[in-house]
Every structure is written in structure tokens, then in C-alpha cells.
């Protein structure tokens, strides 16, 4: 049981920070609403009320999401590889290059098929 104590402590601190910042924000912050403030934050459309016909999100959202995954995954793998570059040597380099090529192909596909054109 002792072994897990630091985890519980860390969890407690995290939860406390969330509660604290929300409470403090609600109490201390000024409240002046306008149209811009009521809009959904950053990414685009109103989730409610749904438009007629079931509400289809434009496909652009998915394209963006795919791009995000392409680069996100790339980074996730790049970091540990970079740290152990010397130990992994040539094998690691080739493997990583192959990985990058594959990911780039997905990128190339999206780019060529017009996924980057916002129109």
C-alpha cells in the first residue's frame, strides 16, 4: 500500500487544482456576456440546436482530425527514438524513416485530394 501513496497524493493535488481554479474563477472573474463570448470556442459550429435532417458535420472536421493524427503520432514516436538515437543506430534510423514515409503518404493523399483547400 505504501508503494501507491505518491500516486494518491499526486491525484489529490490534481483534483484540488481543478476545483480551486473553477471556484476562484467563478467568484473572482467579471461577468460581461456578449455574442462572441457565447459562441463555441475555437472550432467552428454550434452543437445545438441541431440543423434539420440529422445534422451533418462538414467533412472538413474529419480531414483536420486526420492531419492532426498524422503529425501527432509522428511526434509521439519521434521523441523516444530521438532520445535513444545512438543506441538504436542504423536499424532505428531506417525504421523511423520507413515510418515517416508511410505517414507522409497519408499526408500526400490528403493534400492531393484537396483536403487542405478550405473553400
Amino acid at each position: 500500500m505504501e508503494l501507491y501513496a505518491p500516486i494518491f497524493v499526486l491525484g489529490g493535488i490534481g483534483a484540488g487544482f481543478v476545483v480551486l481554479s473553477m471556484v476562484v474563477g467563478a467568484i473572482a472573474g467579471p461577468k460581461r456576456y456578449n455574442r462572441a463570448k457565447l459562441q463555441a470556442y475555437e472550432c467552428g459550429i454550434d452543437p445545438t440546436p441541431q440543423p434539420v435532417g440529422g445534422g451533418r458535420f462538414t467533412i472538413k472536421y474529419y480531414l483536420t482530425a486526420m492531419l492532426f493524427i498524422v503529425f501527432d503520432i509522428e511526434v509521439i514516436f519521434l521523441v523516444p527514438w530521438a532520445i535513444h538515437l545512438d543506441a538504436l543506430g542504423m536499424f532505428g534510423l531506417v525504421a523511423m524513416l520507413l515510418f515517416l514515409v508511410n505517414v507522409s503518404i497519408a499526408y500526400a493523399y490528403e493534400w492531393r485530394r484537396g483536403g487542405l483547400e478550405w473553400g
Partner: peptide
């Protein structure tokens, strides 16, 4: 399969 994706692109 990968080449197929490339073919779709180019």
C-alpha cells in the same frame, strides 16, 4: 496498399 494510396493521390 501503400502504393495504392499513392496511386489515389497522383
Amino acid at each position: 496498399g501503400v502504393l495504392g494510396v499513392l496511386a489515389e493521390a497522383f
